[in-house]
Simulated assay, not measured.
Amino acid sequence: MDIFALLAENKIREAMEKGEFNNLPGSGQPLKLDDLSHVPDDLRAGYRLLKNAGVLPEELEIKKEIITLQKLIDYCYDQDEKRQLTKKLNEKILRFNILMENRKTGSAALSYYKQKIYSKLGGY
């Protein structure tokens, strides 16, 4: 252990002995753990930071906008406004489909290169 880890451990131990960790908010409650098993190890910290900051991936933002536009269209009575909202909805759906198609293409390219690497390594 390095010196900083030892100092930190000592400070934590002292705080525990003084009872500074007693009566903390959420004390005795189970932890709410996010299942980040689908996120690669090297991206988890960044993913958690973005999630805690309320930042969503672009495709999820667009999906939320699509749902909002669909609800607006459902409750809209003005035909001109409904036509404009439908146009925006179609643009968002197109953008969403392009993003999802790019994701599929990326994974196909990944599997193609993965196979090439395996064949170079000896046909795994």
Rank of each mutant, 00 (worst) to 15 (best):
D34S: 12
L33T: 05
P25V: 00
K71T: 13
L36A: 01
L31M: 04
D35P: 02
I66P: 00
L72T: 05
D34I: 08
D74C: 01
A45F: 15
N22E: 15
F21A: 01
P30V: 01
Y75R: 15
K18Y: 05
G46F: 08
E20P: 02
G46R: 06
E20C: 09
K71C: 10
R48E: 15
Y77W: 09
G54W: 08
L24H: 02
A53L: 10
D74E: 14
D42A: 10
T68Y: 14
Q29K: 07
A45W: 10
G54P: 06
L33D: 04
L69K: 01
E61V: 10
E65W: 07
N52Q: 13
D41G: 06
L49M: 14
K63C: 00
I62H: 00
E17C: 03
Q29E: 12
E17H: 06
P25I: 07
S37D: 08
L24T: 02
I66H: 08
L36I: 11
L56G: 00
D74Q: 10
L50P: 03
D74V: 02
L60Y: 09
N10F: 14
Q70H: 03
A45N: 15
Q70C: 01
M16Y: 05
C76R: 06
P57E: 10
D78M: 07
E9R: 12
D35E: 11
K32S: 15
G19V: 04
V55H: 05
R48G: 06
G26M: 01
L36G: 02
R44P: 01
K51H: 12
G19M: 04
L69G: 00
A15D: 11
D78Q: 11
R44T: 02
E61F: 08
Q29D: 09
A15W: 06
P57H: 02
G26A: 01
M16N: 03
P57L: 02
M16A: 06
D41E: 13
T68G: 11
